[in-house]
């Protein structure tokens, strides 16, 4: 059985269809890239998957459990982690505290009023930070980090509760090419080591074609292609969408 099953979801904003009858599946242990030009509906799709938006119709199931109508934090509870296009971390907390927050939340200890938070999960948090290469900056405030570092902290946070599914919206935006590859390779390693499933959007096509196991393409709210790197490259619809908008994969 697939981990994630999306069936005929629709979403319209003021009469404009942002997502039109989209269905796809995501098996365990797969790195799936979601492609498409700007305005194709990628972010809308992401926001529906983690509960920020509610589809007008259709169903989203994680291991058979319906996610539609659930709150983001409940969906997180079901084992879905997420990073944002404009990364969201807690700026006034240190890198370490950001991770401790997630771990405290995982174990439902957020409402403890007495024992200092510093004494909770320090080792575990450092291990997670080490994975993304941020352990040496653990004591810095998130608000003063370089952008690429914020993205890595965010990734560590998304992985902290050992999710089954990771949603990554533009995980490498604003990073240098070398950093990009490092980050995606790290994710790829998790996919293999932990049997994690990842759905991500990405502008950098070389990253996608090099690392993604499979890709799906959106255009104007519809899913127009689904397959491996070769299939997508040769798909006439995809070529039309990208060349029609004056872009090619090679150029992008």
């Amino acid at each position: 059985m697939s981990l994630l099953t999306i069936n005929n979801i629709n979403k319209a904003f003021g009469g404009v269809k942002a997502i039109n009858n989209v269905s796809f599946e995501l098996p365990r242990g797969q790195l799936l890239a979601l492609l498409g030009p700007n305005g194709a509906g990628k972010s809308t799709c992401f926001n529906m998957l983690n509960g920020q938006l509610k589809p007008d119709s259709g169903s989203i199931k994680l291991e058979g459990v319906e996610l539609v109508g659930r709150h983001p934090r409940q969906i997180w509870n079901e084992g879905v982690g997420r990073t944002f296009q404009i990364s969201a971390t807690f700026g006034s907390l240190t890198v370490l505290e950001n991770l401790q927050m997630v771990l405290l939340s995982r174990d439902k200890k957020l409402f403890r009023l007495w024992t200092p938070a510093a004494s909770y999960y320090k080792e575990e948090a450092l291990v997670l930070l080490d994975q993304v290469g941020m352990a040496d900056q653990a004591d810095r405030a998130c608000s003063v980090l370089a952008y690429g570092d914020v993205k890595r902290v965010e990734l560590a946070m998304a992985l902290a509760h050992d999710p089954k599914l990771l949603l990554m919206d533009e995980p490498t935006a604003g990073m240098a090419p070398k950093e990009r590859n490092q980050l995606v390779m790290l994710v790829k390693k998790m996919v293999i080591d932990r049997n994690l499933s990842v759905l991500f959007t990405e502008h950098s096509m070389d990253v996608v074609f090099e690392h993604a196991d499979r890709m799906i393409v959106f255009a104007r709210g519809e899913l127009i292609a689904d397959g491996g790197a070769e299939d997508i490259r040769n798909d006439p619809k995809v070529r039309e969408v990208y060349f029609g908008s004056g872009k090619s994969f090679e150029a992008a």
């Binding site: 934090r73 971390t89 946070m157």
Partner: peptide, 27 residues
């Protein structure tokens, strides 16, 4: 003391980014 406890962390986190807080299971 409360501000340094997990709850203090949680309210500051909720202030900094309710989006992120929501996405890590914080009510």
């Amino acid at each position: 003391r409360i501000l340094f406890a997990p709850f203090g962390l949680a309210i500051r986190a909720a202030r900094d980014s309710s989006l992120r807080a929501d996405a890590i299971g914080v009510d």
